[in-house]
């Protein structure tokens, strides 16, 4: 009984300073990795014989696309934990992750379009991966808008958790159906993620950039979860104390 109480009432309070202490470190690490990753991508990685210089956008595009999918699953996981055990901090984590996930999805779409113009001659092609990313963006927006539409934060957390779980179950089904649809309708022959000869420097660049994206996402989510905690707990004594001290 006392365990549950501890979870319910003091977790955000203890997590708030912890998140505050960790966020800058992740931020600095993200900047360092991004600097190194960009150096590899622009100066060390060789020019692709088929796609020329335009392929270099994969160093942004691929990590963003990976993150967009990982973050959705992580968000749904936190939301599900919050729904099952009424742990408020988990629900707050889900809320904090959603905008970053949507941003990553948007970056993946944007860079995909930028890459599509020189490769396919069109800003948008109904490629299976791009289409799935677009649907993923809708799933993120659905989660965020549903949460925003409900005034009571506890109810909002639980309702949004249901749609996050339903979405997470549907993501693979949507992905495979879009892929099936794409092969039947003769999709693009060149794919953004299928580069014929992947030089090891390219792989390195992509790996470093992925780490940078991870670190960035963690840093931003920690900062955002602090805002969510403050907003939700604004009537709690410890937040008032915080305000009085500042």
């Amino acid at each position: 009984m006392s365990d549950i109480r501890w979870y319910k009432f003091s977790s955000p309070q203890t997590f708030y300073p912890l998140a505050g202490a960790l966020a800058p470190w992740f931020g600095v690490a993200a900047a360092l990795f991004a600097g190194y990753g960009l150096y590899i991508s622009f100066f060390l990685a060789p020019t692709d014989f088929q796609q020329g210089e335009a392929y270099r956008i994969i160093f942004i595009h691929v990590p963003a696309a990976w993150m967009s999918m990982f973050l959705y699953l992580i968000m749904a996981g936190w939301a599900a934990i919050g729904l099952a055990w009424h742990t408020r901090l988990s629900s707050m984590m889900a809320v904090a992750i959603a905008p970053t996930g949507a941003l990553m999805t948007f970056i993946a779409l944007w860079t995909g379009a930028l890459w599509g113009k020189p490769m396919w001659g069109a800003w948008w092609v109904w490629d299976a991966r791009l289409t799935s990313e677009l649907i993923l963006l809708f799933l993120y927006l659905g989660f965020m808008f549903l949460h925003a539409a409900i005034d009571d934060p506890r109810r909002a957390d639980r309702a949004a958790a249901v749609i996050a779980i339903v979405g997470a179950i549907n993501v693979p089904i949507i992905y495979f159906s879009v892929k099936w649809w794409n092969t039947l309708h003769q999709g693009a022959s060149v794919s953004l993620t299928r580069i014929p000869t992947m030089a090891s420097t390219m792989l390195w660049g992509m790996l470093i950039m992925s780490i940078a994206f991870w670190l960035y996402a963690i840093a931003v989510v920690l900062i955002r979860v602090r805002c969510v905690i403050l907003e939700r707990e604004r009537n709690a004594d410890w937040v008032k104390q915080l305000g009085a001290d500042a």
């Binding site: 927006l141 539409a149 309702a159 339903v166 549907n170 949507i174 879009v178």
Partner: peptide, 22 residues
């Protein structure tokens, strides 16, 4: 999920249509 929410109709479309794709 959108029961009793203001502007529920548009929100319902946003929630449901992506799931209808398969």
């Amino acid at each position: 999920l959108t029961l009793g929410l203001p502007g529920g109709g548009a929100l319902l479309a946003l929630l449901v249509l992506p799931l209808y794709i398969p």
